[in-house]
Amino acid sequence: MKELKVRLLVIIPAFNEEASIGGVIASVKRHAPEADIVVVNDGSIDATAEVATRAGATVLSHLYNMGIGATMQTGYKYAGRYGYDVAVQVDGDGQHPADSIRFLVDTLVKNRADLVVGSRFLGEGDYKPSLARSTGMAIFSKVVSAVIKVKVTDTTSGFRAAGKRCIDFFSSRYPDDYPEVEALVLLHKKGFSIMEVPVTMSERASGHSSITPVKSVYYMVKVLLAIFVDLLKRV
């Protein structure tokens, strides 16, 4: 098959990830050498920016910590302004498989989809979340799939590829905290097409989930509420 030429940007959001960011960048470079890499440093107080620059990524540094939503959006703004065709989000903690970036991008281009999500629950994978977390994820999946009428098994996955229309939309509009689930609903409202492909994710290389047990209740309530509020929003 003919190789489709797309200008590809990998966006890596990072907050105090000096231990893992270098490895993530190296891994992306190895598996997707054609991609440009931008690290959005969300006000880290460690050497994240220096490590990322040394590893050969473009670094956009927020003056202060603004959260994951604003951080992703800065990446999308960069992608939009510098004319990229596809932007892939890859977490800075090393849990997303860089060797699946091309799979995500190929799926997006071939199907002319607007967003392709890498799912931990499709196909064979050994991802075993805790009972509380898997229950939450199952609820999100049920609710979101019903709302957007496309089956999405892994709504909280931050490993996703976005096409040009999606990049433009995210540049102007991106949810603030816990944005992954909400972004799906907003895209659906825009009439954009969403697909899911199976990926295998490893345990995080460093750090821990931003979601602690205490926050998880707030997370559940906030996201479920946001899904329904999003349905009422003008997009």
Binding site: T58, V59, M66
Partner: peptide, 13 residues
Amino acid sequence: NKAIAQELALMKN
């Protein structure tokens, strides 16, 4: 505020 901070990050780069 967010838009300004993002613009600042892009401009510095």
